[in-house]
Design a protein around this nucleic acid. Structure first.
Length: 422
RNA sequence: GGAGGGGUGGCCGAGUGGCUAAUGGCAGCAGACUGUAAAUCUGCCGCGCGUCGCGCUACGGAGGUUCGAAUCCUCCCCCCUCCA
C-alpha cells in the first residue's frame, strides 16, 4: 500500500469500533485506487423521528470523510423500512409510522444531513423504490435465506425472547430488508452505529448469497447522551439536535458531565486524538478550568452547526445568565401580548406556552419559578416570600413591560399592551 | 384448540369494596447549592375554577351489582407461558 493510501486508510478507520473484515476493507481501498473506481459507501437512516442529533452525526461525519477522499456516499432514506420500525437496541416493538409521517420526516432529514455532507456528492435513494416492488414470493424467497435461530442470535431479540417480551414476525423481516438494500445499491461498505452490527452483517450475507461481492462493515461508537449514562436518543430526550438553536445547543453541551466531554470533542466536534490529549493535560495540570474546556466544546459545536459569531454570543450569554445571574438583555425573547390575552400572571404563562395548564402555572409560581427583574413593579409579582406566593397566578397584570425569568432557562421581555397589538 | 397467568397515571410497578387522584421507583418541573441546564438536598408532579376549598376525568373496553368499585359479576379485546 502506498504511503498516501496508507494515510487514507488510517484516517478512515480511526474512531471506528469495528471494521470487518479489516483486510478486505484494505483490499477494497487498494483496488479502488488501482481501478480508479470510488467505493460505494452505504448508510441507511430511517426517518422515524424528524430530528438528527449529534449521535447520528458520528457516522455521518465519517461519511463526510469518505466523501472527502473521493468515495461515493449512498444515503438510503429508509422510507419503507421506517414503516416497519427497526427493533435494534430496543426492548419493545417500535410504533410503525404512516407514509405521510415518513415522507415529512424524510424531507427534514435531508435538510439536516446536508449540514454535514456535500449535497452534490451524495447519492440519495429511497428504499421504497425497490422494496415496494417486492411481491410476496420474492419476500418469502428472501426470508428463506435466514433462520429463526440466526435471528435470535441478535442480543436484543434473544433478551426480549428470554424475558418474554413479544417479538413480532415483521421485526424479523427488518434486518432482511435492510440487508436487501445492500444488494440494491451494490454497497462496498456499510456504515452504522455499533447497535447496527447485526443488521450490517445480514447485508453482507445476503449479498454473498446473491452472488455479489460482500460489503465490509464499519461500526461507529454510539455517542453517550447528555445524561452521561445512556446512548444519545430522541426518545430518552438526552440529545442535542443538529438543527437546534445555538442557545439550546450551547446550554445542553454545558450540561453534560465533565467526564464525557472528551468523547464529545472527538466524536462530535471533530477534535483529533492528539488535541483531546492536550486538552486533557490542560485540565489535569490545572491550567484550564473544566468550565472553560466545556465552554470551548460548546463553542465548537455551535460553530459547526451555526457560526463562530453565534458561538461567541451564546458563550457570553451563558455566562451572564448562569454565572453572573443577570438578565440577558440582548438575547432575551421579546413578546407583546394584549392585556385581554393575559389578564393575570397565570394566563400570561399559559399564553406564552411556558406551562401546559393552569395548574402548572399555579405550581410554577408557588415554587418561585417566576422572577421579575425590573419595572414596572417588582413587588407586583414574583420575588415574594414563600408564604405570599399562593395567590400569585391570579394577580392582575397592568400594561407595561416586564422582564421575566420563567423557570430555569427562559428569559422573556414581555410587553403587555392595553389594547390589541394590531 | 386446551390449561394457567396478566392488562393500573409518560414508563416500571404496588394496591382485592370506602382511609385511593390512587404506595414506591424512574423520567419531568421548581427551589437551594454549584463553574454548570452536572452532582446533591428539598419540594412539586391529572384537568378546571377568584387561593386551605369545590367540581370533573382516570386504573384494557362495554355493561351490571352496591349508598359506595381500580378492587365483586357478565360479555368482549389484547399480551405472556406451557401443551397441541
Amino acid at each position: 500500500m502506498p504511503p498516501d493510501l496508507r494515510a487514507e486508510f488510517e484516517e478512515l478507520v480511526s474512531n471506528a469500533v469495528d471494521v470487518l473484515p479489516l483486510a478486505d476493507f484494505a483490499d477494497k481501498l487498494v483496488r479502488s485506487r488501482r481501478e480508479n473506481r470510488p467505493l460505494r459507501i452505504k448508510y441507511g437512516a430511517d426517518p422515524s423521528a424528524p430530528d438528527i442529533h449529534l449521535g447520528h452525526s458520528v457516522p455521518i461525519r465519517k461519511l463526510k470523510q469518505f466523501q472527502d477522499h473521493g468515495h461515493q456516499v449512498v444515503f438510503i432514506i429508509g422510507d419503507y423500512t421506517a414503516r416497519i420500525g427497526d427493533p435494534s437496541g430496543k426492548n419493545a416493538a417500535r410504533p410503525r409510522l404512516t407514509k405521510a409521517e415518513v415522507d415529512a420526516n424524510a424531507r427534514t432529514y435531508l435538510e439536516q444531513i446536508f449540514k454535514i455532507l456535500d449535497r452534490d456528492k451524495t447519492e440519495v435513494v429511497y428504499n421504497s423504490s425497490w422494496l415496494e416492488k417486492m411481491d410476496v414470493s420474492a419476500t418469502i424467497e428472501l426470508m428463506s435465506r435466514y433462520t429463526v435461530s440466526q435471528m435470535l442470535e441478535r442480543e436484543d431479540f434473544h433478551s426480549r425472547f428470554d424475558s418474554e417480551v413479544p417479538i413480532y414476525i415483521h421485526e424479523f423481516i427488518y434486518p432482511l430488508l435492510q440487508g436487501y438494500d445492500s444488494i440494491a445499491v451494490r454497497a462496498d461498505l456499510e456504515l452504522g452505529g455499533t447497535d447496527q452490527k447485526f443488521n450490517l452483517l445480514v447485508g453482507r450475507e445476503l449479498q454473498r448469497s446473491e452472488g455479489q461481492e460482500p460489503q465490509c462493515i464499519m461500526t461507529m461508537p454510539l455517542l453517550v447522551g447528555l445524561d452521561g449514562a445512556n446512548k444519545m436518543s430522541k426518545s430518552l430526550g438526552n440529545y442535542i439536535g443538529i438543527s437546534e438553536s445555538a442557545r439550546d445547543m450551547f446550554g445542553k453541551a454545558m450540561s453534560i458531565p465533565d467526564e464525557i466531554m472528551w468523547t464529545y470533542f472527538e466524536l462530535a466536534a471533530g477534535a483529533s486524538a492528539a488535541e483531546v490529549e492536550s486538552l486533557r493535560a490542560d485540565l489535569e495540570s490545572g491550567r484550564r478550568h473544566p468550565r472553560d474546556l466545556k465552554d470551548e466544546l460548546a463553542r465548537r459545536l455551535v460553530t459547526l452547526y451555526h457560526d463562530a459569531e453565534a458561538a461567541r454570543r451564546e458563550s457570553a450569554d451563558f455566562r451572564a445568565r448562569f454565572s453572573a445571574r443577570e438578565f440577558p438583555e440582548e438575547t432575551a425573547e421579546r413578546v407583546e401580548v394584549a392585556l385581554a390575552d393575559a389578564p393575570t400572571l397565570g394566563r400570561l404563562l399559559t399564553h406564552l406556552g411556558a406551562v401546559k395548564s393552569a395548574r402548572e402555572a399555579q405550581r410554577l409560581t408557588e415554587q418561585g419559578g417566576v422572577k421579575v427583574f425590573s419595572e414596572p413593579e417588582p413587588a407586583l409579582l414574583g420575588n415574594h416570600p414563600q408564604e405570599d406566593r399562593a395567590g400569585l397566578v391570579r394577580i392582575a397584570l397592568q400594561p407595561g413591560t416586564y422582564r421575566l425569568k420563567i423557570g430555569k432557562t427562559r428569559f422573556v421581555t414581555v410587553t403587555v399592551l392595553a389594547s390589541d397589538p394590531g
